[in-house]
């Protein structure tokens, strides 16, 4: 017993110091911290700018974005261009990796500062943005990677991943 409890007393001195020290807890619902500029909250889409290029849907590691595409002359230029009639982001799957934001060519999908997503039902977490709701339970990418005939015009366009392709998919 060379020390006779000196170490314990030293440690108790530290805890006693903290007893009267400044507390670091912030009462959350009343006190809200300023989020930094880059913080990644819930995703949102500016549908006016979306050009339905499906880049975000393709890159998403969780397949949480589903887009229903239609050819439509939206800007009155006389040419039918792809137009997103349905756009759903399933927050129950999203992992806030920000890949879709980086890949978007027109910056129409972006993170908000909102981070409190809660619902009584998982399907409520699927947020619809387009004019026509999309069923989020239908997977945008089929499991079997075989070439399939498109089942219909309204079905989401499945993108074949070229294994030895040369050029980029737009």
């Amino acid at each position: 017993m060379p020390q006779l409890g000196q170490g314990i007393l030293k440690g108790m001195g530290v805890t006693l110091g903290h007893l009267f020290g400044k507390k670091i807890t912030r009462a959350y619902p009343e006190y809200k911290r300023d989020l930094p500029e880059r913080s990644r909250g819930l995703l949102t889409v500016d549908m006016d700018r979306c050009i339905a290029c499906l880049q975000c849907m393709r890159i998403c590691p969780d397949h949480c974005i589903s887009i229903e595409q239609e050819k439509r002359d939206a800007d009155g230029s006389g040419k039918a261009k792809p137009y997103a009639v349905g756009f759903v982001i399933d927050d129950s799957r999203c992992m806030y990796c920000s890949l879709c934001v980086e890949v978007c060519p027109v910056n129409c999908i972006y993170h908000t500062e909102e981070f409190e997503a809660q619902a009584y039902n998982r399907l409520e977490l699927a947020r619809q943005f387009g004019e026509r709701p999309v069923d989020p339970t239908v997977d945008p990418k089929p499991a079997v990677k075989k070439k399939k005939k498109p089942t219909g015009k309204k079905a989401p366009k499945t993108v074949e991943r070229p294994r030895t392709g040369e050029d980029e998919v737009a």
Binding site: L16, H18, F20, G21, K22, K23, I24, T25, A27
Partner: peptide, 8 residues
């Protein structure tokens, strides 16, 4: 315990 652990 809370005050020792910097909580309220």
């Amino acid at each position: 315990s809370a005050y020792i652990q910097l909580r309220y």
